[in-house]
Write a protein that binds this DNA or RNA. Structure first.
Length: 555
RNA sequence: UGGCCGAUGGUGUAAUGGUAGCACGACGGGUUCUGGCCCCGUUAGUCAAGGUUCGAAUCCUUGUCGGCCAGCCA
């Protein structure tokens, strides 16, 4: 179920096998190249699981490289968060690098291309550049500067670097083919002028290389054999290859796969940022966010995420995975790892009238399927709380819970039967009176009679009051990004994606450490929030248990 | 009406010229000290049309539909 599981032999795996067989490469070295301008989400987790996973599968290694070629957008704040999230997922990199480590080398490469007559300095304004580029259906026009002499290009490029020009005054472009059907090949920009401090190189540079002129060469410098990326870079592969060929440097192979999309959420960095900045959520690590830090706070485990990614697979098909699959995977993981505890979320008092004054203690196994994990003592007293929804006055025949005259098992403890319903002046049920069968202590009876229903409960006097945040899907529609005309994607945010209730937990919960995940029996999985302030514990609901009853009842 | 890529049940995928399988979901049943887990069953698919072949999801052609590309973003 974990790392021992056979690896997915997807098309990239097969491609690598092929490369090893033909001798194109002798080893497998990959890289994960995030831009440090946001937090990692589960889509990134798919990407880096492929990067690290393929390296691992073939006995190679993977580098972590910050793609920091644009000082406008990047921030060191994100770098530590990115490292933390990758480590959390259980991966480690061989080398930690920055694209900015290669600025000197890249500058040298640019000069080589100029000298070969394959790059030129252009002073076309951005609007002109757009005009000259042509359109999808029409070829572009060559810039009047395209045939500058090598000497002049060299001089201008040096002066660009020396800071003689304003932002945008000049760019360095590759000289390829203005009529190329792939627009990326129509003399793409290699360097632009930005008088801006860089988080690592400070003010050493006022020209910065573009993605296209950085990525492949960075891969090459690091000896990356397989540069795995998402589908939108397919169109850039010819350019990636062109630079490697013209520069005559080590030539990695770029292979593209489709990104992960999930129903009921959004995955674009821009939209996630909007949710955070416009306070639709409490932050990047809000448990409703698909960010790794959000999912961590929500109670998703690395193993659950890996299980999920494994089921999603790796293809070139643009797909949207049902979030129900992710939810299934967390349940699958937590089912066998999360200790059971009883917590009543919507309390209704029950007085067991024939119960002694003394507290009785029963054993509740932490993990009923694995007794070796031990048990805890559960206190039963004369007054207890049960879930309000577990009582019904006019109950249908199939309602296997509390109702007057119906015997029900208190989990781990004994059998009780409600015989009186107490209401307030408004007719609201405020308390139940019940009796227990002394013979049923231990949750079974000598006569072996069956009780169909078992409910969870908590002592009314020996419990721990806790706060519980019940999270649900962030959006009410499957595809929040597919907005109709006149609608805004923000309109479909689920107003009920968070609800907070005060609950009573059994005493054993008091020992829980932050980040501990429990199954609140019959309800769902909950994690003790890191930010738990004061003495009252706060739990976040990871996911509800499947509920066959409410499904049936609602039909 | 440019280029590149893609298309298998509702969803995500497997089958690499030889019985279309798995998982999720949905539905029905069994079991049960969690209406959970587990077990059993049902549902439902090769985008279309031609061609190659003894045989095509797979190869070829054409078409249809979908994605990406006209940042001095990545």
């Amino acid at each position: 179920m974990s790392e021992e599981e056979a690896i997915n032999k997807h098309f990239i795996y097969e491609a690598i096998v092929g490369d090893l067989e033909t001798g194109r490469f002798k080893e497998v070295i990959t890289r994960f190249p995030p831009e440090p301008n946001g937090y990692l989400h589960i889509g990134h987790a798919k990407a880096f699981s492929i990067d690290f996973g393929m390296a691992q599968a073939f006995g190679g290694y993977c580098n972590l490289r910050m793609d920091d070629t644009n000082p406008e957008k990047e921030d060191t704040e994100y770098i530590e968060a990115i490292k933390k999230d990758i480590h959390w997922m259980g991966y480690d990199w061989k080398n930690f690098c920055y694209a900015s480590d290669y600025f000197d080398t890249l500058y040298g490469y640019a000069i080589q291309l100029i000298e070969k007559g394959l790059a030129y300095v252009d002073d076309l304004k951005p609007e002109q550049m757009r005009e000259f580029r042509g359109t999808l259906t029409n070829p572009g026009k060559e810039s009047p500067n395209r045939n500058r002499s090598v000497e002049e290009n060299l001089d201008l490029f040096h002066r660009m670097k020396a800071g003689e020009f304003e932002d945008g005054a000049y760019v360095l472009r590759a000289k390829i083919d203005m009529a190329h059907p792939n627009l990326n090949m129509r003399d793409p920009v290699m360097y632009r002028i930005k008088h801006m401090e860089h988080h690592r190189t400070g003010n050493a540079w006022c020209i910065y290389p573009s993605y296209d002129f950085t990525h492949g060469q960075s891969d090459s410098i690091e000896g990356i054999t397989h540069s795995l990326c998402s589908l939108e870079f397919e169109d850039h592969r010819p350019l990636y290859n062109w630079f490697c060929e013209q520069l005559e440097i080590f030539h990695p192979r770029q292979i593209e796969f489709s990104r992960l999309n999930l129903t009921y959420t959004v995955m674009s960095k821009r939209k996630l940022r909007t949710l955070v900045e416009e306070n639709y959520v409490a932050g990047w690590d809000d448990p409703r966010m698909p960010t790794l830090c959000g999912m961590r706070r929500r109670g998703y485990t690395p193993n659950a995420i890996k299980l999920f990614l494994d089921k999603v697979g790796v293809t070139k098909f643009n797909s949207t995975t049902d979030i129900a699959l992710l939810e299934h995977c967390v349940r699958q993981d937590l089912e066998v790892t999360a200790y059971r505890r009883m917590v009543v979320l919507d309390p209704l008092k029950v007085v067991i009238t024939n119960f002694p004054e003394e507290t009785e203690f029963y054993e509740g196994e932490n993990l009923p399927s694995s007794p070796e994990y031990g048990s805890r003592k559960v206190a039963l007293t004369r007054e207890i709380y049960v879930e309000r929804e577990d009582f019904m006055e006019d109950a249908p025949k199939k309602f296997f819970r509390l109702s007057v005259g119906r015997e029900v098992r208190l989990r781990y403890a004994c059998y009780i039967t409600v015989n009186e319903v107490i209401k307030d002046d408004l007719g609201n049920i405020v308390e139940l009176r019940a009796t227990f069968d002394p013979e049923s202590r231990g949750a079974s009876t000598p006569d072996g009679r069956k009780v169909k229903g078992t409910i969870h409960w908590v002592s009314a006097s020996q419990n721990v009051p806790v706060e519980v945040r019940i999270y649900d899907r962030l959006f009410t529609v499957e595809s929040p990004e597919a907005v109709e005309d006149g609608q805004d994607w923000l309109d479909s945010i689920n107003p009920e994606s968070i609800a907070q209730v005060s609950a009573f937990a059994e005493a054993a919960i008091a020992d829980a450490e932050k980040g501990a995940i429990f199954q609140f029996e019959r309800k769902g999985y909950y994690i003790l929030d890191d930010s738990t302030e004061g003495q009252k514990m706060v739990f976040n609901r990871t996911v509800a248990l499947k509920d066959g009853w409410s499904k049936k009842a609602s039909q």
